[in-house]
């Protein structure tokens, strides 16, 4: 049974998923830092609806998925303030659109399920090229993008006040988010892609201290969860997407390690910052 893992037919799907696992975990870390993680699910659902619309219109799935995600990003950019309520509407619209459009087609249910659950095993060279390109681009831009996005998060008017254009990093990050959501949805499915965007940084940010180290930890968690899910799904003959999502949820238990470590630090009186700051002044 184990020889199936090394079958050449699975190499491209495996590598596609691995690149996506790393890229989505990395983009997810930025989304969490910006408190926009719910947007990832909204974009994945919109991409799924766009993919279904493509099948309905007879155009490549990638075109519709990108079109719908781009439309959602444009609406997001046009609104003066965007919050979780808007992302929730994107999720509902995407889910509704996928199923309603699917009901008009003979194979709508199958297509809808593949978009929500994923079809990694059918990945081809184009998918691998896209996933690898995304990973290389996000990793390559990390050192440039990171300080800009972090500064915008903590000092929102810093760039504007100093007449530093915000559009280059804003557009680049929007492109990364959109591409991650679309490629993730098409290859591993809307919910598994969201799980990969959401869970690794949720664990990584409390497991390791320091921005770069916590982002690296998130990527490692995402990649390890992916490899385990891939092997398990093939060996036990289970659907890959739900296995990946379930494993990531189980991996979230790693957060308890942090809670235990934090409690130990507090019990040992080793918590430096509370020792060095005096209590509030009476006046």
């Amino acid at each position: 049974m184990i020889e199936i893992l090394f079958d050449p037919i699975f190499r491209v799907p495996f590598l596609t998923g691995l690149c996506l696992a790393a890229a989505l975990s990395l983009v997810g870390a930025f989304l969490r830092m910006r408190n926009e993680w719910l947007a990832a699910l909204g974009l994945s659902q919109m991409a799924a609806a766009g993919g279904m619309a493509s099948a309905f219109l007879g155009v490549p799935v990638l075109v519709g998925a990108f079109g719908a995600a781009a439309l959602a990003m444009l609406v997001k950019a046009a609104l003066p303030r965007v919050g979780n309520s808007h992302y929730a509407l994107m999720i509902l619209l995407g889910w509704s659109g996928t199923l309603v459009l699917g009901s008009y087609m003979d194979h709508g249910q199958v297509i809808g399920e593949s978009l929500l659950r994923g079809q990694l095993y059918f990945s081809h060279g184009g998918h691998l090229g896209g996933a690898l390109g995304l990973l290389v681009a996000v990793v390559g831009a990390f050192r440039w993008l990171s300080p800009r996005l972090l500064t915008a998060r903590f000092f929102p008017d810093y760039h504007g006040a100093n007449r530093i254009p915000v559009w280059p990093y804003t557009i680049l990050f929007a492109l990364f988010t959109m591409t991650a959501a679309v490629l993730g949805t098409i290859s591993i499915g809307a919910f598994p892609a969201f799980a990969m965007l959401f869970v690794p940084s949720w664990i990584g940010f409390v497991l390791v201290d320091g921005w770069v180290r916590s982002v690296a930890a998130s990527v490692v968690i995402g990649a390890v969860a992916y490899v385990l899910a891939y092997v398990l799904a093939i060996l036990i003959d289970l659907p890959f997407g739900p296995v990946l999502t379930g494993l990531l949820v189980l991996a979230a238990s790693l957060r308890f390690l942090t809670a235990i470590r934090r409690r130990n630090v507090e019990l040992s009186g080793d918590d430096l910052h509370f020792q060095h700051l005096s209590p509030p002044r009476a006046d």
């Binding site: 830092m33 408190n35 972090l150 940010f205 409390v206 390791v208 201290d209 320091g210 916590s214």
Partner: peptide, 10 residues
């Protein structure tokens, strides 16, 4: 931010 590993020095 509720959970962000960015250090004070960073």
């Amino acid at each position: 931010p509720p959970e962000l590993a960015l250090l004070g020095s960073e």
